[in-house]
Nucleic acid binder design. Sequence first.
DNA 1: AATTTATTGCAACAATGCTGCAAATAATAT
DNA 2: ATATTATTTGCAGCATTGTTGCAATAAATT
Lengths: 135, 135
Amino acid sequence: MKPIDILNKHDMKRTSCREGIIEVVMTASQALSENEIRERLAGNYDRTTFYRSFKTLEEHNIIHKIVVNNQLVKYALNNSVTHKNEHTHFFCNKCQSVKCMDDVPVQKYQLPDGYSDNKTEVLIKGTCANCKTEE
Amino acid sequence: MKPIDILNKHDMKRTSCREGIIEVVMTASQALSENEIRERLAGNYDRTTFYRSFKTLEEHNIIHKIVVNNQLVKYALNNSVTHKNEHTHFFCNKCQSVKCMDDVPVQKYQLPDGYSDNKTEVLIKGTCANCKTEE
DNA sequence: AATTTATTGCAACAATGCTGCAAATAATAT
DNA sequence: ATATTATTTGCAGCATTGTTGCAATAAATT
């Protein structure tokens, strides 16, 4: 599915910024930061527009945000085909890359009485396959 | 163990800021943000000193940081008695509180070939026992 | 082509966090 | 007790991430 079709499906206005972000995130093999997305984008957009686009796209479940730490945020496409609903994320301490681990589902956690869970975020930090071989 | 003893055990200078932070975090039932800690502190410290103190205390494994999102960071004591090594964290969407789930250990995740894990962070978001009863 | 509605860009602001440097403080030796 | 040394603090300044209000602009609809 093309970026335009995705926007149409969600009854969203087809602006070039949104189209561009979807395009970039769609073709990326890993989650990308705001700057990484901007670099790959044709047009030049204001930072505010960027943030608002991310927010809207996230609210419509087109992309999701991965907060590595308070200084590093990345975005990835919600692909219902390849990305299982609740997958884990992997962060490589060496190359700082973030990958959606589509084949590593989030496990169920048993909470104490009274607590109810809504969403569980799992971030696995370590060394990725690519950096491992380069040692 | 008192804050001073903890600092001595780690061969750290006993400054009032460090002592205060440990004191506050020690007596808290939940993880606290920078501001929450500052409010509970007697002395008035510069923000830089605060951050540096957090950093040093974290490096010495006295406290640990919980990044809820890029706008909300909380700190909690590393109590080897009550806090198991790898525990999960719970974030309440209603009251914004963060709690160390000492009895809910982080589960093991099987990664694809080539990947090696170092640390796994699990943040469970939902409604806490306190907010549940208030509905 | 005109209207309506949503989006953009700009300016300003807030929060978190880092760095260099001089002043102050803690631990140690005298 | 006092002097010395090493660490820590406070300040100024800066970077990054993110938000808000408002006027200008662009998209979808009539």
